[in-house]
Design a protein around this nucleic acid. Sequence first.
RNA 1: GCUGCUGUAGCUCAGAGGUAGAGCACUCCCUUGGUAAGGGAGAGGUCGAGAGUUCAAUUCUCUCCAGCAGCACCA
Length: 648
Amino acid sequence: MADISLTFPDGTARDYTAGVTPAEVAGSISKSLAKKAISATVNGAHWDLQWPIEQDAQIAIHSMQDDAQALELIRHDAAHIMARAVQEIWPEVKVTIGPVIENGWYYDFDRDEPFTPEDLDRIEAKMKEIINRRDPVTTEIWERDRAIKFYQANKEPYKVELIEAIPGDQPLRMYWHGHWQDLCRGPHLQHTGQLPADAFKLMSVAGAYWRGDSNRAMLQRIYGVAFKNKQDLKAHLTMLEEAAKRDHRKLGREMDLFHMQEEAPGQIFWHPNGWTIYTTLQDYMRRQQTRGGYVEVNTPQVVDRRLWEESGHWDKYQEHMFIVEVDEEHAREKTVNALKPMNCPCHVQIYNQGLKSYRDLPLRMAEFGSCSRYEPSGALHGIMRVRGFTQDDAHIFCTEEQIESETLRYIEFLSNIYRDLGFPDFKVKFSDRPETRAGEDAIWDKAETALLAATRKAGIEPDLNPGEGAFYGPKLEFVLTDAIGRDWQCGTHQVDFVLPERLDATYIGEDGAKHRPVMLHRATLGSFERFIGILIEEHAGKLPFWLAPRQVVVASIVSEADEYVHEVVAKLRKAGVRAEADIRNEKINYKVREHSVGKVPVILAIGRKEVEDRSVTLRRLGEKQTSVVALDAVLTSLAAEAVPPDLR
RNA sequence: GCUGCUGUAGCUCAGAGGUAGAGCACUCCCUUGGUAAGGGAGAGGUCGAGAGUUCAAUUCUCUCCAGCAGCACCA
């Protein structure tokens, strides 16, 4: 056997016989390392302790101290142990796939009966039993045909399909513990007992389509979380409990912001408090857009199907549109209309009024556009995914050459706004050409290059989302996360070659000939509804002062103070602060509690002392201590605090 | 849309084949109290909607609607 040289993280190298395993390498260094080792990284790949190394390599041996590797192995093996537990309890259940995800894993099963919460307890108990057996974990390399025959004989059709989908004739890793086995690329722990028995939990069961395809079988997916120890698991569960308290649906009720009801699913009844947030945000956005060189327009809600046919929506988007028919009783003839699901076709109508010159470009046309989309019932989620919403939408009509500069300009516009609103960090996804698309590849090349170049010039390296672009052009997505870490696309910036063509938008170029403009669809907040949902969850309801619907409550301690309370409220309002009086016959404790729950940022308490020396006692939300401030001083400071960030 | 779960007072939830309960909130009374719930009394519900089984259904069954989790979708 040829010798190979393995280089360790500290730069030293040692020679081994080819085919040596990381377990043997660890043993050659020290007994304690051999004992602690759980896996290795070999030339950048996560490597099982039992896999042979055939050539020179960089190697690092991992122990449970290495979080990334340890957690991956723990979660990965937990998935397999769960699958085994399920098959030990219900041998007829078919296994499919079970990857590691953030904080844990899931595994999809095909079983006729639904899994119940009691079943999850049973599975968890069985998993602990398997862990206690401490079965050694081994992998074997099998020929593809042998594996297929094996799974056919075992009546595991999903595994057969998985293998058939693996291209070429590559050998397959079969993974065993005890008499149970699974197809798996590994790596794994050395025996089932290495999985911490008290640091995992089965969380939920939900449906999931086989291979993510809604035309195929609906499987049952069991989710679990796993950590290195009990404390980490407990911390994670506590974090989830805390996150649930920030749920915008719960806070929306507690802060009296909005409600929704059965008669209008996916649509929002904004209460005065919530609408104040909305209009404050809208005022802010309008100022930003004006500064950003946009013109603002407004377009119809109910539009004849003819326009949607021309724009292509009638063909491609009809199932998501609210269709409105007007019958002969009202009109001379029956007409079919649709509530607008998007603003773009209407904006082109405005663009098309009168001839446009190249001198008019780029033309940035903005609308706070109310859109209605018949979203699938299962997609609705609080105010974040709704059927009636308003986009802070705009379309930039420009030339191909202007795509890059307009994109850069826009990313800077958006970054500035996100920073103001408390999101200095956000994820950017770049989605390039999908399989079915309109437009020539040469134009796609140009557009993709321009988007990427602009993004990088803005100092952002986007996550790639291959093939996820719209059929009409590539796009950038600006993503924020909710309280429990779910991604929500808020901002978007999309190149569109198709709509100007379909709706015949043109401009006269320097050469005196007609040309086709490119359209950039862009929305910064995305929709007010979703963005406000994110804002609420991000701040746990404690919105920055300028956005808080009720900024100040002035609360009396004794009824003798009532008159002065009203005076303070009036002066605050005059100074531009949203203030309310609370002179109810209740103790100050009661009032403080109620307005704290309601997330009012500042409570000014007023008793005899304050009336006498014309002061207030100020208390900030979440703080225990109070301070006595002169009325004039508090008026000045709160008025300054109430100024939106762009006007400071 | 799909799979599973849920739907009882404004909110959070308990309950049972014989037409309902708690706490908070609400109204009134007492209380004027110094920073996260002062005391008392009162009012409040076609038990999500419809159909079926039953002497009797809010409870059991079915259908529908809505919500929740996940999947799919997200121009």
